[in-house]
Simulated assay, not measured.
Amino acid sequence: MSDFELKHKATNKISEKIAYKITQCLKFLLNIFYGSKYAKRAVILETIAAVPGMVAGMFNHLKALRRMKDDQGWIQELLSEAENERMHLMIFLDIAKPRWIERLLVLLGQAVFIIVYSLIYLLSSKIAHRVVGYFEEEACKSYTEYLAKIDEGAVENEIAPQIAIDYYQLPSDAMLRDVILQIRNDEAKHRDRNHSFADAYETHDLPAHQR
């Protein structure tokens, strides 16, 4: 995990400014509900984060079928991203143990974001991937703050959930901090990959089904 780095893609283009603004709106809404309640905040964050990969994977799958061209691995990568984010959610459900009202909020947030992100992807796939890139930047910041609170003793470094130990193949005595490091590393990969997807639309370095 020593190679982790907080990064920010500069908003030099109009599409980047739009994507960043959308991300900041999402962040604002997230902070209204949970602020510094990191585990419960992560439940909402991961619920939203699990949507883009599945939506993008579906649209790319249908496009590849229509054009009868190879996707060069994009679809599988996007679906794998969605599955990885889903596992993050499962882990935090075990940690945060949300009440029924919080679960309802998760379902409503997911329903709204599926519609919003689908519309964004249909209008501009480039902006949609850039939104995810910026969203993952915020996720990396959030998990870095989470780790700092654990190190300060403000958040208990509890025993890692078994689901996290199994998924990441951690030692049986792994702690919450070990899990957060793994999740933050995942988010950094998604951040970089989605920014690279958005860049591909600008350089036209796209798979055959996107041309």
Rank of each mutant, 00 (worst) to 15 (best):
V51R: 00
H88G: 04
A39F: 04
L147A: 05
A82W: 02
P98E: 04
D186R: 00
K37S: 15
L93A: 07
N185E: 13
G53S: 06
E138N: 11
D94C: 06
Q162F: 08
P98W: 02
H129C: 05
H190W: 02
R67G: 00
I163F: 04
K97L: 09
A160N: 08
H129Q: 08
H88T: 06
F33I: 10
S15G: 00
D166R: 13
D173M: 04
I14R: 12
K17R: 14
A39S: 15
A19G: 03
R66C: 09
A111E: 04
I95P: 01
H190C: 03
V179L: 09
L122V: 11
E136Q: 11
M68H: 13
G73R: 07
V51K: 01
S36F: 12
E16A: 13
D199H: 05
N84V: 00
A64P: 01
F92N: 02
R103Y: 06
E152S: 14
D70K: 10
N60A: 09
K40L: 13
E156L: 15
L65N: 12
T47D: 01
R184I: 08
Q162N: 12
K69R: 15
K17P: 00
V43F: 03
R193D: 10
K40P: 02
T144Y: 11
S80F: 03
Y146M: 08
G109E: 02
I159G: 07
A198N: 04
